[in-house]
Design a protein around this nucleic acid. Structure first.
Lengths: 155, 155
DNA sequence: GTAAGTGCAAAGGATTTGCGAATCT
DNA sequence: AGATTCGCAAATCCTTTGCACTTAC
């Protein structure tokens, strides 16, 4: 299905379906909810006894993002990542641990109405929004607690 | 005031107040609502007949962010920027033009209650959140319209 | 057959790091 | 004086680009 969408869009642009493009799209489909960086894709490919150059990885994810099969996401750690765009799905947002970077998703619908408000207040046409929460995941909360009780070290 | 906060925190850490640190903090105070990258800070300094190396700019903004005088912000263009943290101020969010990158701020308070919800659903302790809207600014909307009416070119 | 896509290696750009010189206390 | 900070240049890391070779259509 996603594959057909890709093929159709490529045809429209006079571009070609290649094994590399198919594989990278598949990796995102398999990754499900994961957010992958170019480097992670590159390494996942190595495991599939198939070689794709880094340049192609970069070119391909850019293509997939252009077609809107992928969405670019940058957390405050500055690493560029991509995730599958779930068509017609409820918007999901990210909860990120500021200590270890663990990411959890959070579903929330009623932000769409906010887009209207933003539109009327700013004059921008709003196409998308991203909401991110930063804090400590349960694991890191415990780790901090332990540290505090066993020593007086700061930092 | 912000200056004193910086001095106090530095003392606590056995670190020193220097002209470089003072100037960079001042630039952020003067910039007001602007979001500045390391490079922008670096160039602003040149205009002040004072020389600060890029390394120091990077080290200083990291320090200021550590102390929580600055907040790191990364828009989807991947450029790392920083903004002043306004203590106790209403949360503001960003509306970003996906064509030209123009950023407008948008004030909104009632998202704090959401943090509670996230906390109970995920187990994370939430310290901060960031909401970003992506769309076309009025200028780019017009530019697109003009383009369409004068030619049939796509893209 | 021919335009589009790929791999490779080089180029770019942003950020970090090592180190001797300068500066604050 | 002694520790911290700075500037500089080199090193890293991530991403993009030029070009000859390969492949999809």
């Amino acid at each position: 299905m996603r594959n057909d969408q890709l093929k159709a869009e490529l045809k429209k642009r006079n571009q070609r379906m290649t094994a590399q493009r198919e594989l990278i799209l598949r990796l995102f489909l398999e990754a499900g909810t994961e957010h992958l960086s170019a480097d992670e894709i590159y390494h996942k490919v190595q495991g599939k006894n198939f070689r794709i150059s880094k340049a192609t990885v970069y070119r391909t994810i850019e293509l997939l993002a252009d077609i809107r099969l992928l969405r670019k996401i940058v957390f405050e750690d500055g690493v560029v990542r991509y995730e599958l765009v779930e068509k017609g799905e409820h918007h999901h947002h990210h909860v990120i641990c500021s200590n270890c970077g663990a990411v959890v998703e959070f579903h929330l619908d009623n932000l769409e109405e906010l887009e209207e408000l933003v539109k009327s207040r700013t004059g921008y046409t709003i196409e998308d929004h991203q909401l991110k929460f930063y804090g400590l995941c349960p694991k890191c909360q415990n780790a901090m607690k332990d540290k505090k009780s066993t020593s007086n070290e700061i930092k």
